[in-house]
Design a protein around this nucleic acid. Structure first.
Lengths: 145, 145
DNA sequence: TAAATATGGTTATCATGGTAATTATATTTA
DNA sequence: TAAATATAATTACCATGATAACCATATTTA
């Protein structure tokens, strides 16, 4: 998260960046704007997800399983390879999604270390129910800023 | 944070967004890109801060005090008004910055509810020491993606 | 001016992110 | 094939975000 409400004006930035080249200074202004904008987006989306029993990560886990062509399920480590999240957080989040009935887990008979994770009917319905509002929300937010 | 490593291709997005107009679909693609890009930026910067005894929030608190024209200190609620962070998190983070000697706190004799927060010499030096690397890091990251 | 309301800050509790170390199973290599 | 290494997942622990409920003090209003 990037918490600064008012981004520094160009004049203010110069206090800190006067030694930098113009292109460096403007690339920094861009970066600050991107981080601020994304923080507002992410925060609003988290509220939307939370109102629907999800979170960014919970949602994205459902998405990566759902969007996989020709596959009904993924192994945990395949989910991990598609998402940029630490393993312990993935373990915990999968467990909660299973507890909530959105995913189910079955042993892999070939490699007994790994688990097969499948979207349940409930998980699939949850995703379908949340997606339209997700896109609407993003469109609203993008129009807003 | 937005954890999706590979953003959906246009083709893949259509599975979900076929009912949306072209401009809506592209605004969604933009939003996903902004969130992904910012997540990578924020994550790298957190590592940089953490290696220097700071965090995004700790850094930004030092910055908003330092950058204030004609003021040596701010009240907690003024810091809060400049940053988009909950009050309890601000309380806790200020307390730790004071414990670490980067800030000092003195009572406000006019309004006894509030506290005056000042950058110490150590805090000011810490900021000066961290800023150049912060800008370098941002420039590197912006060049990279 | 006494009561009601607003404001500044804290405490308690929870959710969710991370790293380091561990267990169990597969795979590679000496 | 036994030992060493790699991989999949988990456990234990910590940092840092949020909300709700709470004091203490100021301010407004009946």
């Amino acid at each position: 998260m990037f918490f600064l409400k008012e981004l520094p004006t160009q004049a203010m930035l110069e206090k800190y960046t006067s030694h930098l080249s113009g292109s460096e200074a403007s690339s920094i202004a861009d970066a600050l704007m991107i981080m601020r904008r994304a923080s507002l987006l992410v925060r609003s989306l988290e509220v939307y997800f939370s109102n629907n029993g999800l979170s960014q990560l919970r949602f994205l886990i459902l998405v990566v399983i759902d969007r996989e062509p020709n596959r009904e399920s993924l192994y945990s480590h395949e989910i991990a390879s598609r998402l940029d999240v630490s393993k312990p957080v993935l373990t915990r989040t999968l467990k909660r999604l299973i507890d909530d009935g959105l995913l189910s887990s079955s042993p892999n008979t070939v490699d007994r270390r790994s688990k097969q994770i499948t979207l349940t009917k409930k998980g699939s319905e949850c995703l379908s129910q949340v997606l339209p509002g997700y896109f609407d929300k993003i469109n609203d937010l993008m129009r807003e800023y």
